[in-house]
């Protein structure tokens, strides 16, 4: 990979300052960025590691729900969110593999917004709030298509706040090679209604399946979605599945997530 200067600030303020320089890029767990840099597809002049910032670490209950520091590794979320938001913990426990989960972070995943990543579905289905160094962004405004988000250059996600649902579940169907989601569905039932977010399936990245949300808000049971059809236009076509296949998975996995929700 191209060489770069490596800096590791210990506060958000230092990180923001470091990222204000031309060619600087944030490095969180690096589990996607480093392989990309090996292919020389990314070539930052300075890499600003966010893993040494204590205020971006940790899981705790607070105003508005469960607060997760953006630099918290998946393994920590899997462990520490379990008592508060088991579906989210279970999602975190299924990302990548154990070594990846010890490095990869929720903030890194959300900033990258890979169309097959798991976390975006939880954030969107939970109506979570993305907290950055300058503002808060609602989940519905944050995701703007694959690998595209509402973040500005130099803006850092510092934490994510998840309202805790009455019931929720995430069901992921693995892409057999990468183990990313070929399709993953996160269903969350709140007092105000049900939200269903789908990852891995659409060319536009994570999306809400509104028809299912309406049906499930009226009747939270797998049967509620069995009669729905999923539009396969805009679904991803690749080696591992056709658009029609992904559309089928969206429906099947939604039903299973409803059945599994707790």
């Amino acid at each position: 990979m191209h060489n770069f200067d490596f800096v590791k600030p210990s506060t958000i303020a230092e990180a923001v300052s470091a990222l204000s320089h031309e060619g600087a890029q944030a490095l969180s767990g690096g589990q996607t960025l480093i392989p990309t840099m090996k292919q020389r597809l990314a070539a930052p002049g300075t890499l600003v590691s966010l893993t040494g910032i204590a205020e971006m670490q940790g899981v705790c209950l607070g105003d508005g729900g469960l607060h997760i520091g953006a630099a918290t590794p998946h393994a920590v979320v899997a462990r520490e969110a379990k008592a508060h938001y088991p579906a989210l913990a279970s999602l975190a426990a299924g990302i990548g593999d154990p070594a990846v989960r010890n490095r990869g972070t929720i903030g890194g995943s959300l900033a990258n917004n890979d169309p097959a990543a798991c976390y975006p579905s939880a954030v969107l289905a939970s109506g979570a709030t993305i907290v950055t160094n300058t503002r808060t962004i609602g989940a519905d405004d944050y995701f703007q298509g694959m690998f595209t988000t509402a973040l500005h250059d130099g803006e850092i996600i510092t934490s994510v706040v998840f309202p805790i649902p009455e019931k929720a579940a995430y069901v992921k169907f693995d892409q057999p090679a990468s183990r990313f989601a070929l399709t993953g569905v996160f269903v969350a039932k709140y007092a105000g209604g049900v939200r269903v977010a789908v990852t891995g399936a659409s060319q536009d990245g994570v999306f809400r399946w509104r028809e299912a949300e309406a049906a499930l808000t009226a009747n939270f049971s797998p049967a509620a979605v069995s009669g729905l059809t999923v539009d396969s236009r805009h679904m991803i076509a690749d080696l591992h599945g056709t658009p029609a296949y992904r559309a089928n998975l969206v429906k099947v996995l939604t039903g299973r997530a409803v059945a599994a929700a707790s």
């Binding site: 490596f6 590791k8 490095l27 690096g30 589990q31 480093i34 890499l47 590691s49 990846v100 490095r103």
Partner: peptide
Amino acid sequence: KSCTVFAQD
């Protein structure tokens, strides 16, 4: 995975 961590990190 030591191939996906920078030594300086």
